[in-house]
């Protein structure tokens, strides 16, 4: 059952009475105004949340709509306004995960290309030090990575680099690195083997690292060509 997912803190239970704000009188039309308020108060947040994880604005909008509709149907008793946002996020998380699950068996063409290319880290191809870094082309020292996190431009590069990851790879990478979902939970939910997961995560990290190095960290030390 969906509610048993260990890493999705969703609760359809009403908030304990003590935690509730003063209950509003149930005037006629109160049920109408609430969902509309959700759109104004939480719509943008939920949209951003979905967009990071789905990388598709239309799909993200659909998910937000589905979330509101599900909330409306399932949350008739929900009155704790303070926990409203996390309650809605919980529903959205479920929706996204369901979406991942449905799509996880498709492997797109770009995925295949990505994995073929995966071993192309600059390792030596032969000799005594086969499969070791080529010293001229291995990872270069990144100057002040911490400062990059404050630079607006860095995030543009970062976003472009994550966009290049194939869909399935990006999904497991987001679940693992952004949502901090444990590996075995990801494997279970998406029905993939641990090995498959580690390969995908390794490839994702390698590709993202290379992309940031090329497009951000190297341009501070060498002129752009």
């Amino acid at each position: 059952m969906a509610d048993e997912l260990a890493f999705v803190p969703v609760s359809h239970e009403p908030v304990p009475v003590g935690d509730r704000p003063t209950p509003e009188p149930s005037a006629p039309g109160a049920t109408l105004s609430d969902p509309e308020r959700w759109v104004d108060e939480h719509g943008d947040y939920l949209f951003k949340y979905a967009l990071i994880r789905l990388r598709d604005a239309t799909k993200a909008e659909d998910m937000v709509q589905e979330t509101f509709v599900a909330a409306l149907k399932g949350g008739k008793n929900f009155q704790g306004r303070s926990a409203e946002k996390s309650w809605l996020v919980g529903i959205l998380k479920h929706k996204i995960l369901d979406h991942y699950r449905k799509a996880s068996r498709e492997t797109s063409f770009t995925d295949v290309e990505f994995f073929k290319d995966g071993e192309s880290e600059p390792f030596e191809e032969s000799g005594m030090f086969q499969n070791c870094w080529n010293h001229d082309r291995g990872p270069s020292e990144w100057t002040e990575p911490g400062a990059a996190l404050d630079a607006e431009e860095f995030w543009k590069v970062f976003e472009n680099c994550t966009q290049k990851l194939p869909r399935n790879v990006a999904r497991v990478f987001t679940l693992r690195e952004l949502d901090d979902v444990a590996s075995d939970a990801i494997c279970e939910q998406l029905s993939i083997s641990p090995n498959n997961l580690w390969v995908m995560l390794h490839r994702a990290r390698a590709a993202l690292r290379r992309c940031l190095e090329l497009n951000w960290f190297s341009r501070t030390t060498t002129p752009q060509h």
């Binding site: 969902p35 509309e36 759109v39 719509g43 967009l51 709509q65 509101f68």
Partner: peptide, 22 residues
């Protein structure tokens, strides 16, 4: 590059949808 917020039109559409549901 991508939009960061729902457009006013989308918000209106969502509200409309919710009204229909209720």
């Amino acid at each position: 590059a991508s939009p960061r917020a729902l457009s006013p039109e989308t918000k209106e559409r969502l509200k409309q949808k919710l009204r229909e549901q209720t």
